[in-house]
């Protein structure tokens, strides 16, 4: 938000309520048995939606210059590069093929 944009009270309270609902949903989903990888995907999906809500409304990216959003997304890109390259190693150490002779 810019210096002269007063944060809308209703939006702030609405965001907090949405975060509460999603937290309850996360815990509720925990007690439902999805087939294996789905559990983690659903839990992380909800967490990502919550984080996006915080970034957009509490941190004001929704009203901000888009450059700040770009800065934030760049951190996610570099995190994905880091975890991606590491998993290419750690997930395939027992692979039945020999890459390095």
């Amino acid at each position: 938000m810019s210096l002269h944009h007063v944060l809308p009270l209703k939006t702030m309270i609405g965001t907090a309520v949405a975060l509460f609902v999603l937290t309850i949903l996360t815990v509720a989903v925990y007690y439902i048995d999805f087939p294996d990888p789905l559990n983690t995907i659903v839990a992380l999906g909800i967490a990502t939606v919550k984080a996006a809500l915080v970034c957009m409304f509490f941190m004001g990216l929704y009203w901000d210059t888009k450059f700040n959003t770009l800065v934030l997304l760049s951190s996610l890109l570099f995190f994905l590069i880091m975890i991606g390259i590491i998993l290419l190693d750690t997930l395939f150490r027992d692979a039945p093929f020999q890459i390095y002779g």
Binding site: T23, A43, I46, A51, M59
Partner: peptide, 19 residues
């Protein structure tokens, strides 16, 4: 402070809610 909140939003399901 919001970032601290976001980190916890991820820590909670990742540590406490593994089934």
């Amino acid at each position: 402070w919001h970032l601290v909140d976001i980190i916890w939003i991820f820590l909670f399901p990742l540590l406490y809610l593994i089934e």
